[in-house]
Design a protein around this nucleic acid. Sequence first.
DNA 1: CTGTTAGCGCGTTCAC
DNA 2: GTGAACGCGCTAACAG
Lengths: 340, 340
Amino acid sequence: MATLQDIARLAGVSTATVSRTLSNPGLVAEATRAAVLAAVEQTGYQVNHAARNLRMQRAGSIIALVPNLANPFFSQILAGISSVLTPEGFGLLVADTQAGPDPDSRLRQYLRGGVADGLILFDGNLSLAALDVPDSPPVVAACEWLGDTLPSVRVENAHGAELAVRHLFDAGHRTIGYLTGPKGNVLNVTRQEGYLAALATLGLPSNQAWIYEGDFSLDSGAMAAARWIADPMRPGAMFCASDEMACGFMGAIQRAGLHVPRDVSVIGFDNIEVAAHMTPTLTTIRQPRTLIGERAANMLLKMIATKSINIETEIIPVELVERSSVANPAHASRALVTQN
Amino acid sequence: MATLQDIARLAGVSTATVSRTLSNPGLVAEATRAAVLAAVEQTGYQVNHAARNLRMQRAGSIIALVPNLANPFFSQILAGISSVLTPEGFGLLVADTQAGPDPDSRLRQYLRGGVADGLILFDGNLSLAALDVPDSPPVVAACEWLGDTLPSVRVENAHGAELAVRHLFDAGHRTIGYLTGPKGNVLNVTRQEGYLAALATLGLPSNQAWIYEGDFSLDSGAMAAARWIADPMRPGAMFCASDEMACGFMGAIQRAGLHVPRDVSVIGFDNIEVAAHMTPTLTTIRQPRTLIGERAANMLLKMIATKSINIETEIIPVELVERSSVANPAHASRALVTQN
DNA sequence: CTGTTAGCGCGTTCAC
DNA sequence: GTGAACGCGCTAACAG
């Protein structure tokens, strides 16, 4: 493997000149530059990143810490991050907080040691204390945030919940349930608050029994459906805190011989790709995942470049995507009668 | 940020001793070791990776190069990779061949420069020539492979296709179509060969008109459904080269007022998570994605450790997952008659 | 415009 | 069992 030295020798110049030619070509004369580039071409030289990074006191990469890499929700976000990092010459390291035994200590490890120049945090369950290391690289919290001490990229979660409830209301629903995410999860808490606030605004009753517990997963949606079916006081519409749960819920409902939206209207949150292809197609709240990744990456890059840590918060808008999993309950009953 | 020097000074020993204490504790006396560790504890010292890597001539990470990071198919594979890399102290870099302008040159960049100690390739469209760089770190091709010059982790694609066709045959189907992946894609080619081979084995007719073109995506599945509906000679069953397409296909079929499996049986490939929750639930060929990632990572680590490049091929088994998107066409017709 | 020099922080010989 | 010294490959002052 050729080094700067080799190129210098080959081109008959000093290593400094080679270095300059590669990183700041304007500073070097036309002729020498040509000689250097020729030598580079000839040897197929590539800079050694470890050496450059050591010298420049940087890592050349940023790290995304997610709660579960296997969750497809993050794949599009990672793509967004990658798309802004790559042109800037940064690598993207990914790590899973669930991979090791102690998430907090792993976080510490990443913050020290110069593994990365910055960190994007997607796990709201980490402790703020773990972040408190001196001289740590900048950190931005994305999607899930921890307190107000970190710059963050968030989504209009409460607003999304309100849009969902309002949409069900407009469709004629007066009994609207909520299928929750994991207990304590920030996203879930915020969406649930939005749900309750919307009910209050619309003068609708809220009922603890209409809140079904889930954990964002497909299976938890299916399990909630079983409870919904068995519930004599079940609501006529369900707002699910994630599309995956909505999907699991609808599937189980229909396997039980019931029908969406005839027997229950369903609305999700996320707008995952399959939402548009399910039967019925799923009405949902879209959160632009690529954009979330891009914004988080940009925010982090800005912090790295300016070496400043102004704690700003960027809010990503959501929007209702109307499809066919929501229907007017009166019409639905009528259709039911007609059909049977 | 504390360095080895600082620790050495604080503990009253030399930097060599500190280094030994951390990487080879057995070589150092009990008392001095305690002193060093105390100093480490006190300062919260962490080794500087850039320096260590430079000294040890390694990168401390491996890189996964995927054709499209946003594709959720890879998320579970990445999780598998990460789960074996993390305990071994390697980081996982991810990169998207579509991110930049020239995929091949980006590949070259990763192979030189010591960015990573190894590379897992998921994109079969890269050129083999780009891989031909001297002193490049080990590379393993996963899922999609290029020639036989690379160690690879593959899935029983042809066998999976045969399982699918056989299953449709056993259910009573005699006209079986194939919804393809992208033209030229290795996975698609192999699955199509398996499909044709199975038809031949079973003495079934093969018909060019029953081969519908797709590209693995949901949308291409939906578009194929439109063509299927318009086709007077359409087959009674479709084997789709990916679950996403099967999903898009079924959705469009049902939005058109037809019914799966009454009007057409559908079988997919992958066993993505939603497959078990769709309406109807999707019969498919399972390929264990986490396992693929784990195996590829292990193979790469072994190559890194032994510095050898024996070109082995690991084949990951697939299996049929029976659900409810396949039915006997005779029964289906009868049901149709009964119902109307 | 270019060369000389001096480290970045660490692991590792080679003495003692 | 421990310390002194060297260099991994590179960039950034500082001269000239």
